[in-house]
Design a protein around this nucleic acid. Structure first.
Lengths: 145, 145
DNA sequence: AAAATAAAAGACATTCACATCTTTTATTAA
DNA sequence: TTAATAAAAGATGTGAATGTCTTTTATTTT
């Protein structure tokens, strides 16, 4: 559904939310190792995320990355929007560019629920909520971020 | 959402359902021209569709393509399945391979509706139904297939 | 039979996301 | 102030999907 860049960004945000503070950072290699991402490419994604304000970087010995405070209040959808835009929510179910309410494709009505349920699924929780889910232990979330 | 190959295949099936009969065919260039697809590449897709039994080809002067009768009873989802499989319905909302009911990602529950609504949207109508919608005129479908 | 037509088939080209490698810059610690 | 560390930046590589071009095969018409 999303590009690798966006996918990596989402998981990095979650990882950093659980595993770092402004005084306890994580480096490229640690993140790449724990999330099983290619380190060199992840470096590029991290650069991009710094530029976009999602995370903060520190150079030099002991350096690394940690989460920007503001990012905690964002939803997954907000991160997707920052990384690659929300075009995927407006795409026709058959891929027809000229498809619109005035010029609907053959499954236009039937497909309406899809972007709606996507939007809901991706925006209902904040990163802060997800961090709580993962650290609380009062739920069955077990994936190691 | 789908590959170009699959997208072209879906629209070709609809086009042929409305515009051809076993005695009135459509050639690659006619189809490509009307649907605004690259003709040479479409030729490859049509070959593939013939092999998969979706359409029937006739060589030589007056030749071209028409819809296999059986295809009329298929849904869009059936065509997608034939062309590229249904992997897209089993993908995790965050792109995590190890995501499963026993090992759910942070938005696992929230995302469940998405593939469900996709499946419904793509399987509720048969090609036959869609052809009726397009030829009846008792609806607002206006895209020229 | 010969010429024309149109799909089938094979070889080749292009593009872009994804990924890697090398060099530079900033920071820290000795 | 020098050496070490780690991110930033730039250049380059790769593979798969997409797209093009040429040749072959089957069919029809003259």
């Amino acid at each position: 559904m999303f590009s690798k860049t966006t996918e990596y960004a989402i998981r990095v945000v979650i990882y950093l939310s659980v595993n770092t503070t402004p005084s306890s950072l994580a480096g490229v290699n640690e993140i790449a190792g724990n999330l099983n991402f290619p380190a060199a490419f992840l470096g590029k994604v991290l650069q991009d995320m710094v530029k976009k304000g999602l995370i903060i970087s520190v150079k030099g010995p002991g350096g690394g990355f940690y989460l920007n405070d503001n990012t905690l209040s964002l939803s997954i959808l907000d991160i997707v929007e920052l990384m690659e835009g929300l075009g995927f929510l407006n795409k026709c179910g058959l891929g027809i560019n000229s498809c619109s309410p005035e010029n609907p494709c053959p499954i236009h009505e039937e497909y309406k629920n899809v972007p709606e349920s996507m939007r809901k699924a991706l925006s209902i929780k904040s990163i802060c909520d997800i961090r709580e889910d993962l650290t609380d232990g009062n739920n069955e979330l077990t994936i190691d971020f």
